[in-house]
Amino acid sequence: MDQAMQTAAPPVPQPARKTKQNQGYWRRFGVFYLMMAPALIILLLNNYLPMIGSVIAFKNVNYQVGIWKSPWVGFQNFDYLFNASDAWKITRNTILYNAAFIFLNMVVGVAFALMFNAMRSRKAAKFHQTMMFLPYFLSWVIITYLVYGFLNPEIGMLNKTILPWFGAERTIDWYTEPKWWTVILPIVNTWKGIGYYAVFYLAAIIGIDQEYYEAATLDGASKWRQIWTITVPLIRPVIIVLTLLQIGRIFYADFGLFYQVTRNAGSLYDTTLVIDTYVYQGFIVTGDVGMSSAAGLYQAVIGFVLVLCSNLVIRRISKEDALF
């Protein structure tokens, strides 16, 4: 790729030849620009032009005079972020939850894949795979309904049926007690996403050359040993890359999970408020676009650094899988 760039780069001395060459270039590749045009326009609208809007973070917006004419306020909009006792909490929540999700997706995903691979009945394996994948297809809205069916304080499955079974003395107000959500959210997230990761890892496992196993069996290695000495080491690059890709996004939380599934209950904020919901909240509740843009910018900049770092690491491990 880089080579192609360099051969095309050197300037051509004679202007006459240059135009001729340019004409040839446009005749040959002009159509490419046409092909890319629709996507480029969409990118501009969705991504690039809004980037200009980041200046809102440095303004005290008054719509009546318009965004561009609103006064500049420097870093004042960021004040609240760093003065708040919450800023730390929100950052912590975002990162810890994502870390937990990444860890669970990896460990449970690999474990499930190994078990699928070990099952003797191909049919049974297929069936369970299918079932496990089902939650991945459901929207967060639907999952909110499902969770609500369990957690509804008055008539939910947990309070009305399951807790009494276990002889619990009191029922729990799930939507006002934040501590439970540090467990609920990882469970829900893993439940929804694990099908995807398990299948991914399974594909990598199946791709391993059978000869390795045959040789190991001849050597008398137990199945358990084969897993640790052959399977896991061989799929390690896939694990690492998939995990790093997620780490690059560790500063971005899944808005659907944190907004919908928690029903955006204020009393849960201690353990459920993450940057994405905070930005949305700031935008909607206080209506202060300056401050919520500031929070958004904070997220974007740190997110940017994190993606760069994880990409750097991926490049070291497997150049092909790096984004750039």
Partner: peptide, 23 residues
């Protein structure tokens, strides 16, 4: 303004639950 924004966020966390007797 910046203090007020934070106070509003804090309120969201407690007011509803306290004033309805939920906690």
């Amino acid at each position: 303004k910046s203090q007020v924004t934070n106070l509003i966020n804090v309120k969201k966390q407690y007011a509803a639950a306290l004033e309805t007797g939920s906690i």
